[in-house]
Design a protein around this nucleic acid. Structure first.
Lengths: 252, 252
DNA sequence: TAGTGGTCTAGACCACTAA
DNA sequence: TAGTGGTCTAGACCACTAA
C-alpha cells in the first residue's frame, strides 16, 4: 500500500486520500485528532514537507483544522439556516424536510464592531443606489457573533440625504431596525433582490470572521426597493460559508 | 522591505502580500504572468519551498493559477448570472443595476455526461421526497458545459413509480423538460425551495468541473412541490463558484 | 518538559511548455 | 533546449500546548 509505484499519483496525494477515506468512513469523527506530521513521517517514511503537503490537502478541503502545538483535528459542519423569504418559508411546504440536515438554532446573536459613517458613494455603490458617484452615503457596518463565533459581516449603504437626522444614522436604529425607520420616512421597502457570490476570503475577512483555512465566504448583496427602479438600501453581507445554509422559496 | 525583522509575519506571507497588492492595484492584469518560483527565490533570497509557499497563498485565495512548465498567471472572474426566479426578475426593479458587474451571457450550453438510472432512495433522498428509504427513485445526472468549460453538475431525483414509462426516464425529456412532463402527469410543480451551501470541492468535483485550486463550489438543492408537503422532485446542483452570480428576488 | 505544528534551507529529479 | 512548476529529501529552529 505504501509504495506500489504502479500509479503516478504523488505520495502526498495518496497519504491525503487514505486519511480522507478514513475520515469519511467514520474512523475519525468530528473533533478527533488525526495522525500528525511526525506520525505520517514514520508511517509512510516521508520527509516532513511531504507529510505537511498531505495534511495541507485536507485542510484545503475544509476537512481538518490544525492547532499549533496540539495536533490536527477533524472539523465539524453545523450550519445555521438563513431564510431569504422569512414570511413565506416553512409554512408547511417542506414540513421540515431539509435537504441537508441542519439544526435550527435559537441561540442569541451578539452584534459588535458597529460603526456608522458618511462617505462618498463611489461608482459601484452609486450605481446600485441610483446615485451619482460623488453623492454621500450613510455607511452602517456591523459584525454578528454567535456563541463567541463571528459568522457574518454586514455593511449597509443608504443615501445620506434620505436618512440624515434619523435613527438610521445612530448605532441603534430602534425597534424594527432600518426598514421600520425607512417606512416611517415614507420609503418602505416592498421588494428585495439578493445577489450571491462565493469565493475564498481575503486576509481581512479571515481575521474578522476568524476563518480556518479552507473555508470560503458567501457574499450577499441585498438591494431593497420601494418601487421599480427605486432602490433605497444596499446591504453587503459576508458570511462564513461553513456556518450557513441559505434558503429561498418561490412560486412557479 | 525584504528583511525588516521588525514584524513576526513569516517571509512567505510578506511575499504573498506584496504580490497580492500588485495584483489588486492592477500592476498585473488578469491573464498576466507573475514572477515564478525562480524569480521569487532570487528576488527575496529564499529557498524554493518558501517561494512556493508564497505562491500557494495566492492560489488558495483563487487569485492565481499555475500552469506547469509555463508559469503562474492572474485569474479572471467573469461570472454567469443565474436567476432563481426567472419570471419575476429583471422586470424594471433593478434596471440592470447589478451589485457586481457581470456580463449576461447568451452563449450556448452543451449538456453531456447524461445518465438516467433507477436506484434505492436512501435516507437523505427519501426524506426530501417524502418516500421510504427503500423506495426506488429515478436518478437523472447531467453536466453543463459552456464554451468548453464545465460549469454545473446536476442530479435530479424523482419517485420511480411516478415517472416510469414517461420521457422523464429517457436522456432527452422533450420540450419543456422534466417539469412539462410532470405537468402532463398531473403533477405540475407550483412552488420551489432552494437550499444553498458553499464549500471546497471534493476530488471528484474538481475533476468533473476542471476546477483550479482555490475555487469553491456552490451546492444548490432545489425541491419542487405540487402542493404543501408534496415534493415531486429534488434537483441537486454543483456549481463552479467562480463562474456564477446567483440572484433571487422577492417581495417584502 | 516532551511533543506538536509552523517556518525555512539547500539541495535534487521530474514532466511539461514554449521558443 | 532552456525554463517552468511539481514533487521530495533530510535536516534545522521556533512558538505553542498539554501533561
Amino acid at each position: 500500500m505504501t509504495d506500489q509505484e504502479g500509479t503516478r499519483r504523488p505520495k502526498y496525494q495518496r497519504i491525503a486520500d487514505e486519511l480522507r477515506t478514513a475520515i469519511q468512513s467514520g474512523d475519525f469523527a468530528p473533533g478527533d485528532r488525526l495522525p500528525g506530521e511526525n506520525d505520517l513521517m514514520s508511517t509512510y517514511e516521508v520527509a516532513r514537507m511531504t507529510a505537511r503537503q498531505a495534511l495541507a490537502v485536507l485542510r484545503g478541503e475544509g476537512l481538518t483544522e490544525a492547532r499549533k502545538g496540539a495536533g490536527v483535528f477533524v472539523r465539524a459542519f453545523r450550519p445555521l439556516r438563513r431564510r431569504g423569504v422569512p414570511r413565506l418559508a416553512g409554512e408547511g411546504w417542506g414540513g421540515g424536510r431539509s435537504v441537508w440536515a441542519a439544526e435550527i438554532e435559537d441561540r442569541a446573536l451578539v452584534v459588535d464592531q458597529v460603526t456608522v459613517a458618511e462617505e462618498e458613494a463611489g461608482p459601484r455603490i452609486a450605481q446600485a443606489l441610483n446615485l451619482a458617484p460623488h453623492d454621500t452615503v450613510c455607511v452602517r457596518s456591523r459584525r454578528f457573533v454567535l456563541d463567541d463565533r463571528p459568522v457574518l459581516l454586514s455593511v449597509s449603504y443608504l443615501a445620506a440625504d434620505l436618512v440624515r437626522g434619523t435613527a438610521i444614522t445612530r448605532p441603534d436604529t430602534g425597534p424594527g431596525g432600518t426598514y421600520a425607520r425607512l417606512a416611517e420616512l415614507g420609503h418602505r421597502p416592498v421588494r428585495f433582490r439578493e445577489e450571491l457570490r462565493c469565493r475564498m476570503p481575503t486576509a481581512d475577512e479571515t481575521g474578522r470572521l476568524t476563518l480556518p483555512p479552507g473555508t470560503p465566504v458567501v457574499l450577499i448583496g441585498r438591494t431593497a426597493f420601494t418601487e421599480p427602479g427605486r432602490p433605497v438600501e444596499l446591504n453587503e453581507m459576508t458570511l462564513d460559508a461553513s456556518s450557513y445554509i441559505l434558503e429561498y422559496d418561490f412560486d412557479a
